[in-house]
Design a protein around this nucleic acid. Structure first.
Length: 581
RNA sequence: CCGCCCGUAGCUCAACUGGAUAGAGCAACGGCCUUCUAAGCCGUAGGUUACAGGUUCGAUUCCUGUCGGGCGGACCA
């Protein structure tokens, strides 16, 4: 409901409460809420204050409700109030109240639905953050769609938002990618080292190898031989991880300074690929934050030292442990290994410490498989004396792709994954974004490829877009100046369907705030479906372009107002609003 | 064995954070195109909200237990 209407109703109700319960301490007007009843006979809005205040007041709820209604001041917004059920107060609104959103939408245009809920606080949304070791797959796609939509919604609801991608450019995985690429490169010159089973198998690695060849020809061939590369390597069957680590060590030796160049090359290639992929998907980032930079500038060392200084670490078996069990974790965690190398966890502590200093609020979007990580991260921040209330971690459940009723598998190493790029090419960006965001993020997602692809009424994404196209068509046929519709006489909108549609329009701002508060952009998709449904129903029942000029203008005003909400809402979830279909 | 998420119509999912007779889409069935886009509309049918207790005026929602599914439980990331 519109802010103006809401505060009016809150004040009216508050006045009535003061009369009905003169001796009670009453809730603040701004805390009074209203429900939207499911049934039309229960009015347009309902309040349960009488049920809630009955007990402290020592009255029965219906009696209290009667007193409140009797004390309710008369209003141009409230047509009447009724008492129902155990003590609900049902409010029936006047047409003027229901239609108020139409004018507001016309006036505010692209800002219709914006809110000041966030108070311009600075929030960071960190998402995707996939290892740049290969193409993004459909699981990353869901995190991307969710994170981008959430960031948009928060921004629209009055936060200052920074979209950030944490680049894991420091770890062993990048080394594995670099050595995988180099081995493929060597193979181009006939140096056929047996490819390790736990290396990166995908064709994109071979593409990068050819890219290296184009760049430097045989410049990285050095004096590599199978014998030198596999020197001192344990048997693959017995110890494949050790085998791979030895290959990496030998590659570093053979390549010398060029190792860093190859490493940098594969990183840049994969980051650029991911960035392009995401940009085409309508997902953009303000900051690409390097994990490696945390090591280079000493942040990791400092964070661990601070933990130690505060007495939350101990040494055991040559490694340095963080006593995370003191903070609710199920076991203590290593931050620095026996070999002196910091764990991923250590850089993650430094990263989160860094983030909490930069922002009022930090939202991490993680795959649900990382849930076990939460206690140790929050524990470490607590141990550092940082405000963990500022950190929210939103888990996104897996997306499982179905094709012809069959599960499609996805494993990066095996190279048999369905990439985000393939998915987008097959399904289209709009349907992909919509399907991803149509489920609550903590719900497992069955992504039905055949349904998403279908260009038919089975596909829900077209339902909303079609409503928009119809609206455009009507407005185009009228061919008048849309801005003139602001002065239309809305009292001509007398039918129930028109008022219901206008009322739905008035809920848009509530949905934005609710979606922002709950980190739940799916609510917007559902709202848009409802709004489109109300419009389709109206469109089918009544004609817009009628002869009566004032009625026509009023209806066009409603159309334009609804169209604006559809455009605004669709853009938040990254779906286009086509003018024709 | 332990921890987290989940279980709602045949299928895929909602349910305004504890409200009234649990709602949509698809699939099924019956209607509506010489009039602004039929990718639409109108209607019918479909439920013991996994199960058993508990909390209270009131539970899909909160608590306990059972069953079932997913994911975790590295000096990997």
């Amino acid at each position: 409901m519109l802010a103006e209407l809401k505060s009016h109703l809150q004040n009216s109700l508050s006045q009535a409460l003061a009369v009905a319960l003169p001796d009670q301490t009453l809730p603040a007007a701004s805390s009074l809420g209203f429900d939207r009843p499911k049934q039309a006979s229960h009015g347009d809005l309902a309040t349960n204050v009488a049920l809630q205040l009955a007990k402290p007041a020592g009255l029965n709820p219906r009696e209290l409700a009667t007193r409140i209604v009797a004390a309710l001041p008369t209003s141009e917004w409230i047509a009447r109030a009724e008492i129902a059920g155990p003590g609900f107060i049902n409010l029936f609104l006047t047409p003027a109240a229901k239609l108020a959103a139409v004018k507001l939408s016309l006036q505010q245009g692209a800002a219709f639905g914006r809110s000041t809920l966030g108070g311009q606080q600075h929030v960071q949304v960190e998402f995707v953050s996939a290892n740049p070791t290969g193409p993004l797959h459909v699981g990353h796609g869901r995190g991307a769609a969710y994170g981008a939509s959430l960031a948009n919604v928060l921004e629209y609801a009055g936060w200052k938002v920074t979209r950030e991608y944490y680049v894991n450019d420091a770890g062993r995985q990048m080394d594995i990618l670099a050595v995988s690429t180099w081995l493929r490169y060597l193979a181009l010159f006939g140096v056929a080292v047996p490819f390790p089973p736990n290396g990166y198998q995908g064709d994109y690695v071979k593409d990068m190898a050819r890219g290296l060849q184009d760049k430097v020809q045989n410049g990285y061939l050095k004096d590599a031989t199978i014998a030198r590369i596999t020197a001192d390597a344990p048997d693959v069957e017995a110890d494949k991880e050790g085998h791979l680590d030895t290959l990496i060590a030998n590659a570093k030796k053979i390549l010398g300074d060029d190792w860093a160049v190859v490493h940098r090359y594969v990183l840049d290639e994969q980051l650029a690929d991911g960035r392009d992929d995401l940009a085409e998907f309508g997902v953009n980032f303000d900051v690409w934050f390097s994990e490696k930079s945390l090591f280079d500038n000493g942040d990791v060392e400092r964070a661990v030292a601070e933990l130690a200084k505060r007495g939350h670490t101990y040494e055991k078996d040559g490694a340095l442990w963080f006593r995370s069990t003191d903070f609710g974790d199920e076991k203590d965690r290593v931050v620095r290994r026996e070999n002196g190398i910091y764990t991923y966890f250590a850089s993650d502590i430094a990263y989160h410490a860094n983030k909490l200093q930069r922002f009022d609020r930090v939202i991490d979007i993680w795959g649900a498989d990382h849930h076990g990580y939460i206690p140790r991260v929050k524990g470490a921040l607590q141990a550092l004396g940082l405000p963990t209330e500022g950190l929210d971690i939103a888990l996104v459940q897996f997306a499982v792709l179905y094709r012809d009723g069959q599960k499609a598998s996805m494993s990066t190493r095996s190279g048999e994954f369905v990439t985000l790029r393939e998915l987008r090419a097959e399904v289209g960006n709009d349907a992909t974004r919509f399907f991803y965001v149509l489920r609550k993020s903590d719900q497992h997602l069955d992504f039905d490829l055949d349904l998403a692809k279908s260009q038919s009424n089975e596909n829900p994404v077209y339902y909303i877009q079609y409503a928009h196209a119809r609206l455009c068509s009507v407005l185009n046929q009228w061919a008048g100046d849309v801005s003139s519709l602001q002065s239309a006489d809305l009292s001509k909108l007398e039918s129930e369907r028109e008022q219901a549609l206008a009322q739905r329009l008035g809920e848009f701002g509530d949905v934005i705030e609710s979606a922002a508060r709950d980190y739940a952009p799916h609510q917007i998709a559902f709202y848009l479906k409802d709004l489109a449904a109300d419009f389709h129903s109206y469109y089918n029942a009544d004609r817009v372009l009628v002869d009566d000029e004032s009625i026509k203008l009023a209806r066009l005003a409603l159309c334009q107002a609804v169209r604006q909400a559809l455009v605004n809402g669709l853009s938040l979830i990254g779906v286009s609003a086509p003018q024709t279909m």
